[in-house]
């Protein structure tokens, strides 16, 4: 494999939420294939700053695929071409010499652009605030082993809870639906006995918050699952639907 490649980057530039935005193209010669995608962005920004230009704003923090902060739409795919990988974990060895890479922000009306590639994802916090918790005040908990949980269920709950809240599902969905995100939380809590008492209200309240935030409805295309960097399964949406039906029936 080549140690370094030459690239062109076509990047979305937008000064602020009100600006209409446009693409700009940058030459990136001699990119080391050992670099991560964000390190390549660092190199570009370093050059822009030295040239007296405005660096490209992008969100990032942990750079190891767990905080969910990075959020680039690369060549038409959330977090780029690699399955089960966040932008920060993507390395340049997966691109080829001479390639033009298009980089855009998440696009969804519920996620307005703040600047360049940075968007506002506070809609997700509102969904959690609406019911993505178990109501237990500090200090009220029984002994942790007093309630055994089947290992299979605990593992499944963990798989759902592994969602990093990055918003790739929304960015990928043609309806900009946040159902994969929402269902992962509902599923996580529904699978555990501790989550049982609030099962009905939780799902109703979270769905209301989701719709209020302007996120779209789910038409089961499965695109979200394919692009989710944590490979959260769409079966959680099926569970969500069951939970929703159950909640609806028992309310009548």
């Amino acid at each position: 494999m080549a140690e370094s490649i030459n690239l062109k980057l076509k990047i979305w530039r937008q000064r602020n939420t009100k600006d209409s935005g446009h693409f700009e193209t940058y030459d990136m010669p001699g990119v080391s294939t050992h670099m991560s995608f964000l390190e390549m962005m660092d190199v570009l920004n370093d050059r822009l700053i030295r040239d007296g230009k405005d660096p490209v704003a992008f969100d990032h923090d942990c750079r190891e695929g767990i905080c969910g902060m990075c959020s680039m739409y690369i060549n038409g795919r959330a977090h780029g071409p690699l399955k089960g990988t966040t932008t920060c974990q993507l390395h340049m060895r997966h691109f080829s010499d001479g390639e033009t890479i298009t980089i855009e922000p998440w696009r969804a009306s519920a996620f307005p652009v703040i600047k360049d590639l940075v968007v506002n994802r506070s809609a997700f916090d509102k969904i959690i605030a609406a019911g993505g918790y178990i109501s237990v005040n500090t200090g009220n908990a029984p002994d942790a082993n007093s309630l055994p949980v089947e290992k299979v269920k605990a593992d499944e709950a963990f798989d759902a809870a592994a969602c990093i809240g990055c918003g790739a599902c929304v960015a990928t969905c043609k309806n900009a639906s946040g159902m994969l995100f929402l269902s992962a939380k509902v599923s996580h809590l529904a699978l555990l006995p501790q989550g049982e008492p609030e099962r009905k209200e939780r799902v109703m309240r979270m769905i209301d918050a989701h719709d209020e935030a302007g996120l779209g409805s789910c038409t089961n295309t499965g695109a979200c699952e394919a692009e989710c960097p944590k490979e959260i399964s769409i079966s959680h949406i099926a569970r969500l639907n069951r939970e929703y039906l159950r909640a609806g029936m028992s309310q009548e």
Binding site: V136, A141, A144, K151, D155, A157, G195
Partner: peptide
């Protein structure tokens, strides 16, 4: 010890053994 109790009550999915205990 209280921390573990609190977290389990919140639904933190700690690893478990086949018998269902932590």
């Amino acid at each position: 010890a209280n921390i573990i109790d609190q977290c389990v009550a919140q639904g933190v999915p700690f690893a478990r053994e086949y018998g269902g205990l932590l």
